[in-house]
Computed example of a mutant assay.
Amino acid sequence: MPDRQPRRAVITFHEVAERQLAEMDDAALARLDPHLDTIALTPKTAGIQTRPDSPVRDYAKDGVRIAYVSTVLGTIILVAYIEAD
């Protein structure tokens, strides 16, 4: 049986995050991409839960911060906020 690649979640962007993406230059977008890949592969563990009763997770690494919500099955991720220093 061939090795299967891990299942990746589909990432969607809230309109606020879409505006933030539109304002980023190419260098910031290039730095952001691998972090979005990490979240797509491991949405339940990539970020930390902001509060015990909240579905929002906060991912911060290498000057990139992403606030997101993952569906119960981890197949869809809604990115609510993005920043890249």
Rank of each mutant, 00 (worst) to 15 (best):
A9T: 00
T45G: 05
T12I: 02
A84H: 04
R19N: 08
I82L: 12
A17F: 14
T42F: 04
R31P: 03
I66A: 06
E23H: 03
H35R: 15
T50S: 14
R51C: 06
V64Q: 09
D85C: 05
V16Y: 13
R65M: 11
R8K: 08
A27W: 00
A9S: 03
M1R: 04
K61M: 11
P34H: 04
L32V: 10
E83D: 13
D33V: 06
Q5R: 06
R51N: 12
A22K: 05
P6R: 03
A80C: 08
A22C: 01
D33E: 13
R19F: 01
V69G: 05
A9D: 02
R8D: 02
A27I: 02
A22P: 00
A80R: 11
R19D: 11
A9M: 01
I77M: 06
K61F: 10
T38A: 13
I76M: 13
R57S: 10
R57L: 10
E15C: 13
S70E: 12
E18H: 00
M1Y: 06
T75C: 03
V69C: 04
A80S: 15
I82Y: 05
L29Y: 01
D3V: 14
G63P: 14
V69K: 13
R8S: 02
Y68D: 07
T45S: 11
D85E: 15
V56D: 04
A9G: 03
L21K: 09
V56Y: 08
G74N: 09
Y59W: 09
G47C: 07
T75D: 10
D37M: 11
S70Q: 13
D26R: 07
T75S: 12
T71C: 08
